[in-house]
Amino acid sequence: MNNYGWGLPIRASSFAGQIDFGILLIHAAMALIFVLWGVFFAYLLVRYRRRAGTPAQREEHHASSQGGFWANNAGELKSLMPDVLVMLFEIALIVFYAFPVWRSIKMSPPDPKDADVVVEVTAEQFAWDVRYPGPDGKFGRAKPELVHFSNPLGLDRTDPAAADDIFVANELHLPVGKKTLIRLRSKDVVHDFFVPEFRLKQDAVPGLEIPMWVVPTRIGHYELACAQLCGFGHSLMRGDVYVESPEDFQKWLASRAALKPAPPSASNNSGGF
């Protein structure tokens, strides 16, 4: 997996390029600002060091009644020009970049009907529970009291919609080029879904179901890492993302569907370990 290096990781989602554009543009601007100010600053330090017989020169203040506010404070106002330039840059960045891109990435999750794939990702200490709705396209009922180490989501297999649900731990399979809707949940504490190659990061909050979307653009093997402190095992909380051709993805789904889930048993009610 040669996805990572000393710079940004490879780009593997439709919006990764948009995010990288902003990161690179801002860093270019930052470098420019820092170098220009730095050169000026260094010049001032050398030019105005203390020398015998050269007293400090005070700035002229024309504190007279003539000229008005602007003329009297011309020197001070002129020095705020760099600030104005930075502000204009920021306004442009916000209006032409941040607003539209944020809207498309975070504010426009597709309707489940319009998504090619819908998958539910549930975070828990310290694992990712991934669920596909199965052939019927419906997520079945889950009950917290049914949670058991063999049934981490507490799926109620007596519900016909749940019977064909496909469950897999710490593995997320996605077809390349398809719009995937991910419903993000958490069972216990706040976690964070982070796939560096997708440039996608979202907190998983217990009690909320947060929709997010991604169109993977590159077949490959990526890392799903938890990016929000979630307890002593936080750094071990990782999973694998496999982006496959649509055919391979369908084959994988079929192979998982063939694995019959265990029939509901009485012991499922006990909960806990």
Binding site: Q18, G22, W102, K201
Partner: peptide
Amino acid sequence: IPLFAIGGLTGLPLGLTVTDIYLHDT
């Protein structure tokens, strides 16, 4: 002055919603 400025400038990509998606919590 220059070192605090680095702190201020690196706040830019974190304060911007889009780039914060990637840089948050890193």
